[in-house]
Computed example of a mutant assay.
Amino acid sequence: MIYPNSIKNIDQFVEDFIREFQMGLPGSKAQQKMSPSIRNYSNNKNDPSLTRDSSVLILFYQKGDQLYFPLIERSNGDHKHSGQISLPGGKFELTDKNLIETAIRETEEELGLLGEKIHIIGPITGLYIPISNFQVQPIVAYYEGLPQFKADSFEVKQIIETNIQELFKADNKHEETIHKNGFEIKAPYYEVKGHKLWGATAMIVSELEELLKRANLIE
């Protein structure tokens, strides 16, 4: 195995990842490692009759001998999530067959990618977001070839190409204290190209990190 420093073939990487994926997911225990303290005071169980379904896509692709996935900085035009660092994705629409289709559709729209080049690996552990009442289903996939990004100008301020070896270095994990609405929030975050990746997205990525480490695909 040539990991964890470089890759020569994304197909081999995907094969190794799927093998570990099929052994079972780390689940909420892995997510909790990057959970902000405000969740300790929130209702972390959804009401299926009220919760809105959504999905996001973790989309691996090879660039040179390194593996990446895209994060996005939401633009000021997308007022509800303005300025957030997140995975591409959004809410389920009645025209979607399922949440996988939702994730692909939203990624096509936000990143300008071709859906037929997105190959699904599978879902990881879903996460309820109390503040927005969304039940988010993360989907893992890989892209065939090198993606040619074209960001949606309304929703996306910038696309952050995220190198997995860099992101998951120990010195890229930090914690800060945020004062918001009378709460003091302890917020762990990943540092990625000068941005802070925290909250629900960081929790989702934390489970991904655990899977990659378990499979010896990152250090």
Rank of each mutant, 00 (worst) to 15 (best):
P26T: 05
V14L: 12
F21S: 11
P88L: 01
H79S: 14
E207V: 07
L50N: 06
Y61T: 12
I131T: 10
I118M: 09
F60M: 09
N9Y: 14
K63H: 12
T125E: 06
Y3V: 04
S35E: 12
E101M: 00
F69V: 13
K63P: 05
K150I: 09
E144P: 01
H174N: 07
F21A: 10
F60H: 04
L217M: 07
Q137T: 08
S132N: 10
A170N: 11
I159L: 09
L146I: 15
E116S: 12
R39N: 04
W198I: 07
W198R: 04
K173W: 06
G126T: 06
L71S: 05
I160E: 01
Q62K: 14
L146N: 03
I131M: 11
S28G: 04
A170K: 11
I85L: 01
H179T: 06
I85Y: 01
F183T: 08
L57H: 03
D96R: 00
I104L: 03
L67H: 03
I118W: 04
L111E: 02
R74K: 14
D11W: 08
W198V: 03
Y189K: 01
Q22D: 14
L87H: 02
V192M: 07
L212V: 08
A141R: 05
V140T: 12
L217P: 00
I38C: 04
I121D: 03
I139C: 04
E93C: 02
D11L: 15
R19A: 14
I10C: 07
S206N: 06
Q158W: 02
N5E: 14
K80P: 00
E144A: 08
V140A: 05
F134V: 07
T162K: 03
T95A: 06
F92T: 00
S37L: 08
A151E: 08
R74Y: 10
L94N: 05
G182R: 10
Y68S: 04
I58E: 05
H174P: 00
L25P: 01
E155Y: 12
T177V: 15
F134D: 10
M203K: 08
K173Q: 14
N5L: 11
V205G: 00
D78R: 07
K213E: 07
N133T: 06
L197R: 00
L208M: 12
G145I: 12
M23Q: 15
P4G: 06
I121V: 15
Q66G: 06
E155H: 11
A151M: 09
F183P: 00
K157S: 08
L67V: 15
Y142W: 15
K173L: 13
L99F: 05
E93K: 09
L146G: 02
L99A: 00
K29R: 14
P26G: 05
E73C: 11
S28I: 15
I118G: 00
A151C: 06
E191Q: 08
L217W: 05
L211Q: 09
K80H: 07
A200N: 10
D47E: 10
F149Q: 08
L114V: 12
E15I: 12
A187I: 03
A200K: 09
D11H: 14
H179K: 13
H119S: 06
Y3K: 10
N9M: 12
V14R: 09
